[in-house]
Design a protein around this nucleic acid. Structure first.
Lengths: 344, 344
DNA sequence: TAGTTACACTAAAGCGGTTTAGATTGCAGT
DNA sequence: ACTGCAATCTAAACCGCTTTAGTGTAACTA
């Protein structure tokens, strides 16, 4: 069963040169005649030689692998579509450079740090990407202490601690609030992921500020668990208020759908009596009924940017700022001017 | 910058023993005194030693890593939720065994085989999982020729070629058709993913058979691209037929949602005039309006099972059959008896 | 007392690459 | 003919771990 591997020595033997020469040829070192070079390459080709990643790493080269850990509760796969997109972006950027991605999903913070550190100490990765930077995140400093090269995507506040790919959620929120205000909405609610992820707080703050700037004093922020069930429940409560909101902002597409379904079930028409705004999920948003207005950001691009920053850092190059395109608000069928019936 | 790594030699020196002894202690070999054992462990602990994965691999141990490649078209992330679930399942099973997962997303079949083979040849993985077995798939044989240990999830027809985790889609389809038939439906359509993935064909065949068994002769199968847009378009065409179907089966939740939105837009009531059945997506299905009846399978479990089978194979154990729980039909708000208006 | 055996431990040879420090050769310069 | 030097190529050490084949000692037999 144990299949004989083709090693460098085999190639060297076939090409009638030393191992050193083979190594030099394959690393494009100068000082070899073209004839030898060709002979070695031909031999390698003929034997179908592939370098052993382990041997390479052991003799000081990197691993050409970077690590990503996703931290999420067990079995309860929350709805974090952006996270998936970041991950996809990381994947995309990494794979066309022939770098491998080591992944793990864990269910606690400790486990995550443990995994990241052990990957580094056991030399499985050259660096790691944090895809869900939190406010007051202790991972950057913990990893710095362990000398793990790291880049992240998310909260721009951490930019002084590590390279961060980020985009301006505040500006996006302001677009939405401005748009709704122009349509006559004054009572706007926002259902916000209550988790520790930074983006929720950033958006909440921006939301409060945007409303204040426009002298809309009846805004409300409801932190909820990021599930369709919680969104449905809270939406129901909001819509039963005497002075119910005329517009609700959600933090993702699935919760927005759930909210819309609740409204319909209660006989409240979307968008005539209630405007609904989602975040992300362009694919789905075009095929709900009515279609969902949403904020759309290039989350994929964020993941890609983070990888580029990490690789620059590994090469000792300058990393730069990492700001990506600001998400834009895409109005669709779920937003409309305030209906007369709703004004008091 | 180059940080001095703690190696086994350091541990050996501190514990005043040889490298061999350290190695024996850490691999739980017999023939060492408890005192020495403790001393070595204490030394390792004190220095914070972590074995080098590369060195380990190089000296013949495995890599404790398995590989998964996802093959999907670039930028056009089709809706293959089951695939994500398989992946999650693989991840889950792998991670609690402290095995790592190497991942890559590619956009072509060739690239996929290339990746898998190169991972194996460069000894980055101990084995690989194929998450989307196709009809007439050539990967099993290609990988067998390269001696790559492999297990897959999907088409049970390939069971004689490699360990496969699978579940009985046919039985699930029969449940649905039986249920609809009992409600009086005789004109049932099925919008099927037209890709090369096996499951579409398996379900199509089962669908034809289940209809035939019940003498429903007006069934139709429409192969479409697995996007919300294509589903919307085809649904529209179906609903414009003189003898339009009274029930439509979709291959996932997003296409079903798109179909339902089209019906509503055309003034056709769901479920009174049209029953809609989705596949998967329980999270979403409970929060559409109306809620979506759907077939639900444990795709996560399939991924987990595939990993178990691969690991058994690696250990030279018996692998077994790999059949998982049959998906079940969960009726919700989008299915109802045929309305009078539709009978001719 | 010598011979065997069990036990606790170790020296050294790999694994498959990279790299350092030469070794060899041919040829121009004097 | 002898030196100097660039151009090619190679021997051997090294990376950090595993494993084979011992070594040395104490206890047990006869």
């Amino acid at each position: 069963m144990a299949i004989k591997r083709v090693t460098m020595a085999d190639v060297a033997a076939l090409a009638q040169v030393s191992k050193t020469t083979v190594s030099f040829v394959l690393n494009d070192r100068p000082g070899l005649s073209a004839a030898t070079r060709d002979r070695v390459l031909a031999a390698a080709e003929e034997l179908g030689w592939t370098p052993s990643a382990a041997a390479r790493t052991l003799s000081g080269k990197g691993t050409d692998t970077i690590g990503v850990v996703l931290n999420r509760p067990p079995r309860l796969t929350g709805i974090e579509p952006a996270l998936e997109d970041y991950f996809q972006g990381v994947e995309r950027e990494v794979s066309h450079r022939l770098i491998s991605l080591l992944t793990r999903v864990v269910s606690s913070h400790e486990e995550e740090l443990l995994t990241l550190r052990s990957w580094w100490y056991s030399r499985r990765v050259d660096g790691v990407i944090l895809v869900d930077l939190r406010a007051n995140d202790d991972r950057p400093s913990a990893l710095r202490n362990a000398h793990v090269p790291v880049a992240g995507v998310g909260d721009p506040k951490l930019r002084n601690q590590l390279p961060v790919a980020w985009h301006d959620d505040s500006a996006a929120i302001d677009q939405v609030v401005g748009y709704l205000h122009a349509l006559g909405h004054t009572r706007i609610a926002r259902l916000s992921d209550r988790s520790v992820l930074s983006y929720a707080k950033i958006r909440n703050d921006a939301f409060e500020k945007s409303c204040a700037d426009r002298r809309l004093s009846e805004q409300m922020v409801c932190p909820i668990e990021a599930t369709a069930a919680a969104a449905a429940q809270t939406t129901r409560e909001l819509l039963m208020l005497a002075k119910r909101p005329t517009a609700i902002l959600y933090d993702n597409a699935v919760t927005a759908m759930a909210g819309m379904a609740v409204a319909q079930e209660m006989g409240i028409q979307v968008p005539r009596e209630l405007s609904v705004v989602a975040w992300g999920g362009s694919q789905i948003c075009n095929y709900t009924h009515p279609t969902l207005s949403a904020v759309e950001g290039d989350d994929l691009g964020l993941g890609m940017q983070a990888v580029r920053m990490l690789l620059s850092k590994l090469k000792g190059e300058d990393v730069g700022d990492g700001q990506c395109a600001t998400p834009i608000f895409v109005p669709r069928g779920s937003t409309a001017p305030v209906a007369r019936v709703n004004s008091f």
